[in-house]
Design a protein around this nucleic acid. Sequence first.
DNA 1: CCCTGTGAAAGTGTTCACAGCT
DNA 2: AGCTGTGAACACTTTCACAGGG
Lengths: 251, 251
Amino acid sequence: MATGRTHRPATRSRGIPEATVARLPLYLRALTALSERSVPTVSSEELAAAAGVNSAKLRKDFSYLGSYGTRGVGYDVEYLVYQISRELGLTQDWPVVIVGIGNLGAALANYGGFASRGFRVAALIDADPAMAGRQVAGIVVQHSDDLEKIISDNGVSIGVITTPPGVAQQVCDRLVAAGVTSILNFAPTVLAVPDGVDVRKVDLSIELQILAFHEQRKAGEEHEGAVAPVAAHRDAGEQGPDGDVPAVMPA
Amino acid sequence: MATGRTHRPATRSRGIPEATVARLPLYLRALTALSERSVPTVSSEELAAAAGVNSAKLRKDFSYLGSYGTRGVGYDVEYLVYQISRELGLTQDWPVVIVGIGNLGAALANYGGFASRGFRVAALIDADPAMAGRQVAGIVVQHSDDLEKIISDNGVSIGVITTPPGVAQQVCDRLVAAGVTSILNFAPTVLAVPDGVDVRKVDLSIELQILAFHEQRKAGEEHEGAVAPVAAHRDAGEQGPDGDVPAVMPA
DNA sequence: CCCTGTGAAAGTGTTCACAGCT
DNA sequence: AGCTGTGAACACTTTCACAGGG
């Protein structure tokens, strides 16, 4: 009560739910595969199976984009590929920098699926002077002294951090100061960023720990009856990094 | 109506919400750091800041584990570390196999945070005969012909797939047949698994596409007023792979 | 008075089931 | 008849706000 303000009336008329956005790349991948096999149309049921979701969810997701299907028929594959690509902003290409060219950074630089879909590795950056000048994945590694210049010269707005955790925050700060507004963080650290900057994290050890949690449950369920009530682990067989939306520090 | 069945009355009495499970590793990491600095107790406010969440969420999360805090004081760091570790099943150690020792597989094998927290790389497996026998991260790579034997000899229940997408499903099938019940999939494919097997995926290009979506919005918002109502992008600055829970195929 | 633990409210996401177009 | 698009029900998650123990 008191102040009243419900913290934003949410004028969502065109706002696509975050959960839907996270699934669009999945649909796009499935559609691209169909497109390559020259399949002209696909039903929500078929596409959902290919993307590993259920068809009601898929139809609801698409309904946020508009009415792109034809009742009694399905969706036009090419048309949907285009609409989703556009919605995701993949019709333009995004120059990306990778900072921290260790094992993981090098692996990402070499990763094919990177360049394929609208993303271009504009530069590789590392703090080690011995690294600078070397080629990784056909790209010359540059020294981090030039980070700011590299970002602005290439108009980079997406940065990938694959540094050791100890320096991730300062690299992040420099990227943001130089104009980067989206960060994909592979370092096991919580990054503090100012408002308006998006951070997504990919964390191997968190994923493993979540698996271990469920694994432990399974072991306990084997022949049970005592303490912990079984059930619980209802929808096994689902996949995808889910839940988890830690808020960011006040900056 | 008709059949009535509400699809499971949900006997949840000890079931920890999935969203909470996904955050426990985050808390554990923050607590471990405090522990190393010999900090004896911490308030929900402080710990929440360190983990990048808000304190109400953290308290609610901990309430699912039990009442481990002291009112007026906070939480005992060591005690919480232990409780969360136990809840996540990290008091035992989990042998893990990595299948597909390319750039990414090798990078993961070398990744330190792996072994640190209850996980041990029990074997590296690759289909390339030229790879077999070589050492990666101090571990001899074994040929995939022996996959089943390796799994059962080592009692492996968690498998990491870093193969090319084309063979990911068949590798997955073999892992599952050999007894693996948790899979961390880095290949950009939707894996079909039988009931009772957990799959989590880590997908670089999906993460980038989600960032691109928001990035595009920001660009559009710069000087707006016309079509799309601004607002929408409320809580910028959040981080973490969220949303996304694709169901699995019927297998 | 401080800080945890938690009901209750609000917000977000998923599923159902069917109206309505082709 | 078949399949999309969607309101409405349900389920899950987050946030609020405060009771109550230390």
